[in-house]
Design a protein around this nucleic acid. Structure first.
Length: 277
DNA sequence: CTCCAGGTACTAA
DNA sequence: TTAGTACCTGGA
């Protein structure tokens, strides 16, 4: 494995929190899956990790992009330290990061997240990967990639439902078919936030919150806070926003308040209220 | 057993 | 434009 110096990076919350459902931790090893590879991480403590990629080994470029090692983290932290709530969150759960996950995987995963809880989503994605992903053996352990888009597109609704995803099976299949038949990623590459969102909202099963998650966790829109019930509660109860405020208006307020880093602030607040409850 | 959490699509006012 | 409701699963 390769050693890397990785300061201010809360691996456990970042990989196992609400932004990715494709990682698991066995007490020593973090294993993460994409549609074509598996990442193995061991946290050595003292800001050091061991890492390896499979099947292509030593893919440092991938690691740098995926973990967003080029962000100026201290600058972000300085910008969002605005009040006692966020400061408490950052002190309680320090060093949360935002990943840049693959677009297809993120879109398909977050379709499963709607009206669902994190534990159940993880379980479903694990079923899907074990049944329809590719097996990669690492030190005697079998790890599975996330199923390829065209594989999901060609599964029957009934087969998809075996992964306990309920009525979302139809949305998942339709989305996979569309992703497979179009080059959406290229199409949205040069669009601004509003246009990307408009495009994502045309998918069945993708609404305001899920489209925001896709934009934040795979497209690096740092100025968006996905507003699920938890995030809304925070901003209504702690920041005094009107419960009747419209989704977009609430987002604009949050982003202005956190000076363009609403996504990062939102992660701290979200994970903080999640562990508190 | 019933009740509830969790976003989106759909329908009706 | 807004309000209400069904959807599926797992856990209390």
């Amino acid at each position: 494995m390769n050693k890397m110096y990785l300061p201010n990076y809360n691996l456990s919350i970042t990989l196992l929190g609400g932004q990715s459902f494709s990682w698991h931790f066995d007490g020593e090893n973090y294993f993460g899956s994409t549609q074509d590879r598996v990442i193995h991480i061991i946290d050595l403590g003292r800001n050091e990790i061991l890492w390896q990629t499979y099947p292509q080994n030593n893919d440092e470029n991938f690691i740098k992009k995926y973990f967003r090692l080029d962000v100026n983290y201290n600058q972000i932290i300085r910008k969002i330290q605005k009040d006692e709530h966020i400061n408490t969150a950052m002190k309680t759960i320090p060093d949360i990061r935002i990943l840049k996950q693959d677009f297809d995987l993120t879109l398909l995963s977050f379709i499963l997240s709607s009206n669902n809880n994190i534990k159940a989503i993880r379980k479903s994605i694990r079923y899907l990967s074990e049944n329809y992903g590719e097996k990669i053996s690492i030190e005697g352990k079998n790890i599975f990639t996330f199923p390829k888009t065209n594989v999901i597109a060609n599964l029957s609704i009934d087969d998809l439902k075996k992964s306990r995803i309920g009525y979302r099976a139809k949305f998942l299949k339709e989305a996979a078919q569309r992703l497979h038949n179009t080059n959406l990623k290229n199409h949205i590459e040069n669009l601004d936030a509003d246009d990307v969102k408009t495009e994502l909202l045309t998918f069945n099963g993708i609404g305001d919150k899920v489209s925001d998650c896709i934009m934040v966790f795979s497209l690096m829109f740092d100025n968006i806070t996905p507003l699920d019930v938890w995030a809304k509660k925070v901003f209504i109860n702690l920041y005094g926003l009107d419960p009747k405020m419209k989704y977009n208006d609430m987002q604009s307020w949050i982003n202005e308040y956190f000076e363009g880093f609403a996504a990062w602030a939102g992660q701290f607040l979200f994970e903080w209220v999640r562990i508190k409850s």
